[in-house]
Design a protein around this nucleic acid. Structure first.
Length: 420
RNA sequence: GGAGAGGUGUCUGAGUGGUUGAAAGAGCCGGUCUCGAAAACCGGUAUCCACUUUCUGUGGAUCCAGGGUUCGAAUCCCUGCCUCUCCGCCA
């Protein structure tokens, strides 16, 4: 959510941002409602003031044991007027709020304008794409042959997109999770283990509700939502809080399974581990001082990149264009790892600065000595999502015999160096 | 799941219809005192909104949330949420 005052004072800037993102512009409607709203507030508050003053007079009169019935009957009409105006105001604020929630975040000036995948800029590449003289296999073939991921039994147990990891496959999951968490700890993130289900307020806070309800698994009976990413519970940790300036930046990391309905996906995108309904991820979340948020974005990015470098997986960094970066972000990078067996790039991390957009919605502020509370900036990034990293490891580290050499940094976590 | 109690400011905790945005204490900040500290004493200590101003000021709202009663609600009524205690169940 943007600041209403900011919209009021810089409507053109906001409109331009919306245009760049390719969203619908309802700014004029918002400004009109805002004006109506403020008019009514002035009227109703004048009446409420009268109510307060006269009520006190009535109290005085009654204390003096005199008759106050004239004033009381006079106040009856004031009461009615207040009720009408309040109802009206509520309606307007409801509508205004609805529109406000539809206004996307304004992109940062450094973000390229565009709406096609080609408009995303590759700003950095790392690692060598291996060229070998044997036939490189996709991970699902390797995994099946090595009997480390059982996709079919996953289907039996639950359905497509719920793989059953087995033996070295299961251990590799644990190894990656621990590796990612240890690295995050090293980089100064506090580990948290949040609930895997959240209530509606939390889902609204990070923007999954009301619009993206289809993305989540809903437990209707208890009105709970399975988390689509740790971002949801972790970013909500400080909802409705005023932090102290000296606490910033707050950095959290969390491992959680992620549950996504992914309605409407099909084809090569969902083959193997490419897109799942349940997957594991370590998420990095920061609450920072507004003045530092773009530096924090860069350091978040390098925290995520370091993981791929240590795993020695070739990857590239994309600066996402205005049309491709989503509703809530001001600036977003994607990290894509090279999938040797599929000969394509797979997204393993998405790193964003939301500026105050989420903080406003979540009502997370900070206060420094002697000044008013101010909204923090929030950022998050995957560090990292497991399945595609696993896919890339299997494919990039495969031998002609179909074995997998485990990346060195993982040895102390896996306890084995080769699979197969 | 059953029975009961309760949700007040940073915290503890008063307050059952009329100067209660809210007693008191603690904490915190500033000051006096001190070589310095402690103690003592004095002062300050919420957030949101509107208007006006930009040194400020005026008004409105907020005692879990939402509705209701009333001229007037922290205080009475209803609904929801949450917490605690006892019982039941249980990794």
């Amino acid at each position: 959510m943007l600041d209403l005052k900011f919209i009021r004072e810089h409507p053109d800037l906001v409109k331009e941002g919306i245009k760049k993102k390719g969203d619908v512009d309802r700014i004029d409607d918002i400004l009109k409602l805002d004006e109506e709203r403020r008019l009514i507030i002035q009227k109703v508050e004048a009446l409420k003031n009268k109510r307060n003053v006269v009520s006190e007079q009535i109290a005085e009169i009654k204390k003096a044991k005199q008759d106050a019935s004239t004033l009381i009957s006079e106040m009856n009409s004031v009461k009615e007027q207040i009720k009408d105006l309040d109802e009206n105001l509520k309606k307007i604020e409801l509508e205004l709020n609805k529109l406000m929630l539809q206004v996307p975040n304004v992109p940062h000036p450094s973000v390229p304008v565009g709406n096609k995948p080609e408009d995303n800029q590759v700003i950095f590449s790392w690692g060598k794409i291996n060229e070998v003289d044997f036939d490189l296999k996709p991970h699902w073939e390797l995994a099946e042959k090595l009997d480390i991921i059982d996709f079919e039994r996953g289907v039996k147990l639950t359905g497509a997109g719920f793989p059953l990891y087995k033996s070295e496959g299961a251990k590799l999951q644990r190894a990656l999770i621990n590796f990612f968490l240890d690295e995050a700890k090293e980089a100064g993130y506090v580990e948290v283990q949040p609930p895997l289900m959240v209530n509606a307020s939390s889902a609204i806070g990070t923007g999954q509700l009301p619009d993206k309800e289809d993305l989540m698994y809903v437990i209707e009976r208890d009105e709970l939502y399975l988390v689509p990413t740790a971002e949801v519970p972790v970013t909500n940790i400080h909802r409705d809080e005023i932090l102290s300036e000296s606490d910033l930046p707050l950095k959290y990391c969390a491992y959680t399974p992620c549950f996504r309905r992914e309605a409407g996906s099909y084809g090569k995108d969902v083959r193997g581990l490419n897109r799942l309904h349940q997957f594991d991820k370590v998420e990095l979340v920061k609450f920072v001082h507004p003045a530092t948020s773009y530096n924090e974005l860069e350091s978040l990015r390098s925290d995520a990149e370091r993981l791929l470098q240590k795993l020695n997986l070739p990857y590239r960094v994309l600066l996402m264009c205005t049309g491709d970066m989503g509703f809530t972000q001001s600036k977003k990078y994607d990290l894509e790892v090279w999938s040797t067996g599929q000969k394509r790039w797979l997204e393993v991390s998405s790193i964003s600065n939301f500026e105050a957009f989420q903080a406003r919605r979540l009502n997370v502020r900070f206060k420094s000595e002697g000044s008013k509370p101010e909204y923090v900036h929030t950022l998050n990034g995957s560090g990292l999502a497991l399945p595609r990293v696993v896919a890339a490891i299997l494919e990039n580290y495969q031998t002609p015999e179909g074995k997998i050499i485990v990346p060195k940094v993982l040895h102390k976590y896996t306890g084995f160096e080769v699979i197969g």
